Measured scan of single mutants.
Amino acid sequence: TDCSIVSFLARLGCSSCLDYFTTQGLTTIYQIEHYSMDDLASLKIPEQFRHAIWKGILDHRQLHEF
């Protein structure tokens, strides 16, 4: 599957948040998979999107835990 942040955000309906990640040089889900809610806040992601992205990260982690 596509591991880009572009497609990750698109699946979550949060494509408008892409610039918050790319300006930090973040391009793949693996770069953010251990981010906390505070990390997302420090990227200045608007609160209404933060929870959806956080949930997406948690779902991603569960899929990749062996």
Rank of each mutant, 00 (worst) to 15 (best):
Q24N: 07
V6H: 09
P46S: 03
M37V: 13
H64G: 11
R50M: 14
E33R: 10
H60W: 13
T28R: 09
H51I: 07
S36K: 09
T27M: 06
D39C: 05
L9F: 02
P46D: 03
G56T: 02
L12N: 06
I57C: 06
E65C: 12
H60G: 07
H60P: 03
S16Q: 09
Y30Q: 15
Q31S: 07
K55E: 13
L9C: 03
L63V: 10
P46N: 03
R61D: 05
T28Q: 13
D19A: 10
H51T: 14
L40D: 01
T28W: 10
Q31W: 01
F66R: 13
L58N: 10
F21T: 00
F49L: 09
T1W: 10
I29G: 01
L26I: 13
E47L: 12
Y30G: 14
L63T: 14
V6K: 15
D59V: 11
L26V: 09
S36H: 05
E33L: 09
I32E: 00
F66A: 15
S16L: 07
E33Q: 15
I32L: 09
G13R: 07
L12R: 06
R11I: 05
A52G: 07
F49H: 14
C3N: 12
S15H: 11
S42I: 15
S42N: 15
T22V: 11
D2E: 07
K44L: 08
R61K: 15
L12F: 05
L58T: 14
R50I: 15
F21M: 02
F49V: 06
H64W: 08
I45K: 01
D2Y: 04
G56V: 02
T1D: 11
L40A: 00
K44Y: 07
F49P: 09
I53V: 07
L26M: 06
R61M: 08
I29V: 13
L18C: 15
Q24I: 08
Q24S: 11
I57M: 06
A52P: 10
A41I: 14
Y30A: 13
I45H: 00
I45C: 03
L26K: 05
H60L: 13
Y20T: 08
I45E: 02
L12D: 01
Q24W: 05
L40I: 11
A41Y: 06
A41P: 01
C17D: 00
W54H: 03
Y35V: 06
I53H: 01
V6Q: 14
A10Q: 05
G56M: 02
M37G: 04
L58M: 09
G25N: 10
Q48K: 13
T1G: 12
I5S: 01
P46C: 02
K44M: 10
T23W: 06
T23Y: 06
K55R: 09
I29P: 03
T23H: 15
H64L: 10
F66E: 02
F21D: 00
E47Y: 14
D39L: 04
T23P: 07
K44D: 13
C3H: 07
Y20R: 10
L40V: 05
G25V: 01
T28H: 09
E47G: 15
Q31L: 02
K44V: 04
S16V: 07
V6W: 08
L18A: 14
G13V: 01
M37T: 08
P46E: 05
P46Y: 00
Y35N: 03
C14L: 15
I53R: 00
Y35D: 01
V6I: 11
A41G: 10
F21P: 00
Q48N: 14
S16Y: 05
H51Q: 15
S7I: 04
F49C: 10
E33T: 10
T22A: 12
Q48P: 14
S4P: 04
E33P: 01
I32N: 01
R61P: 12
D38Y: 09
R61Q: 11
R61F: 11
F21C: 00
R11A: 09
D39V: 03
D2P: 05
I45A: 01
Q62K: 12
D39A: 06
F49Y: 14
G56R: 02
L43I: 11
E33C: 10
